[in-house]
Write a protein that binds this DNA or RNA. Structure first.
Lengths: 146, 146
DNA sequence: TTAGGTGCAAATTCTTTGCACCCTG
DNA sequence: CAGGGTGCAAAGAATTTGCACCTAA
């Protein structure tokens, strides 16, 4: 699946609502549209401001509730903090992370190869690279066992 | 630089304080020790609990202040949320991120090669891999220009 | 001695929740 | 019409800040 124009996304949204037999409210429609129309990974506040222009009565808590709902529906993904806190690490060597998607365990690992990945040329048009880090998502053995 | 035993880290801490002529307080010593002695990436609360056992009068806000100070000193690194909010993305395709270390801009990019990286065998001992994502840290052109 | 660090308590910021009313299917 | 969604206001959780006292160098 690749990047889609907004119309295709809106259509897919409609389809998913029908398929799963969930309510398609005005608010959900406008909130999804706000996320679907940008590549900027907006936060809840920015989405709220955007939706508000077309729907002045919308409330911030509905935006939050709807965003988590959209995530549960598999229509959007979430970046950055998700109920997790800032954490600290005294390991200063260049390393990568394995993150358990169930319990959140984060374990360091190192790899010469991953330290020097070749990046696609598209990167050249975004900015100057300083460092690359690989994040592996998976299930740790403790969680797999239980 | 590779992983170090705690004594080496404590020594380095002392050296850095002397070099930079900053005060080495009891609290800083114990808080750094708490981070240096584990590979678990503890959060502020957990560090606070640990330090508290040896120093019952320490306060949580000192823990926070000291952790940020340790980061400024280059003695620790920080994972997860750093004054940033949860963000949302309607792009469901497998993609990677370029993150500007100055302004926080996050841009998606895709790469067949990065989608299927070979991971080191050490991973086998941590858990079952689901997906890998590359995070490129750098400076975006807008920030580089100003 | 003194610049800067610390503890306390209160403030901020982001996000979530309880409840009565409203709307979609 | 019924069950779930919404707006409001208030609660919560994590982190930060102002201020008077204390301490390392």
């Amino acid at each position: 699946m690749s990047e889609q124009p907004i119309e295709a996304r809106m259509q897919r949204f409609k389809d998913v609502c029908r398929e799963k037999a969930v309510k398609l409210t005005h608010q959900r429609w406008e909130i999804y549209r706000e996320v679907a129309q940008t590549a900027e990974h907006p936060d809840a506040e920015r989405i709220f401001q955007g939706v508000r222009e077309r729907m002045p009565t919308v409330s911030l808590d509905t935006v939050y509730r709807t965003l988590w709902w959209l995530k549960d529906m598999g229509l959007i993904t979430v970046l950055g903090p998700t109920r997790e806190r800032t954490r600290f690490d005294a390991n200063l060597s260049h390393h990568h992370h394995f993150v358990c998607s169930l319990c959140g365990l984060t374990r360091d690992f190192s790899s010469e190869v991953l330290d020097h990945l070749e990046l696609p040329d598209t990167i050249q048009s975004i900015g100057q690279v300083q460092q690359t880090q690989v994040e592996v998502k998976g299930v740790c053995f403790d969680c797999a066992a239980s």
